[in-house]
């Protein structure tokens, strides 16, 4: 499955989660997400998401100058962002449970022992 398509829907909550403990700048957030296992996440997607969340009022932002180099723009989560994170965490939990239930192997249900031998899963559900 194309995980980049899946990422698009959850990038907001992923970025919020990545900075919930500690403020971070653009590439810093990318690095945290990749360390967490989201290898396919794109730099520009993360930066764009940070800007959008900031514009939506979920993040705070501040610039940290550096000696002889380009400055860094740090992002931190605020109360509105934490509320957003909690909501999205809950909806992701429901969504993930639903998907897990849908995708779980049918063999775990009691009546499915006979269903294993039946040619179609539709009939096994009807027998329940």
């Amino acid at each position: 499955m194309d995980t980049t398509q899946l990422l698009k829907g959850v990038l907001d909550v992923a970025v919020l989660a990545a900075i919930q403990e500690e403020d971070g700048y653009g590439y810093d957030v990318v690095r945290r997400l990749r360390a967490a296992g989201l290898d396919d996440v794109g730099d520009a997607s993360v930066y764009g998401t940070l800007r959008r969340l900031y514009a939506a009022g979920a993040l705070t932002s501040y610039v940290v100058p550096s000696d002889g180099g380009p400055h860094r723009k740090y992002y931190g989560i605020n109360q509105q962002g934490r509320t957003m994170l909690d909501e999205q965490r809950a909806s992701w939990g429901n969504f993930a449970a639903t998907m897990n239930g849908l995708l779980a192997p049918k063999a775990v249900t009691k009546t499915s022992r006979t269903a294993v031998t039946t040619p179609t899963p539709v009939r096994s559900i009807g027998e329940k």
Binding site: Y25, G26, D43, Y47, V63, S66, G69, R72, K73
Partner: peptide
Amino acid sequence: EDLTDGLEADLTERLAD
């Protein structure tokens, strides 16, 4: 400005990585 502020720093670090 909002979209690309700090872009150089991010790109530089990405290359350094």
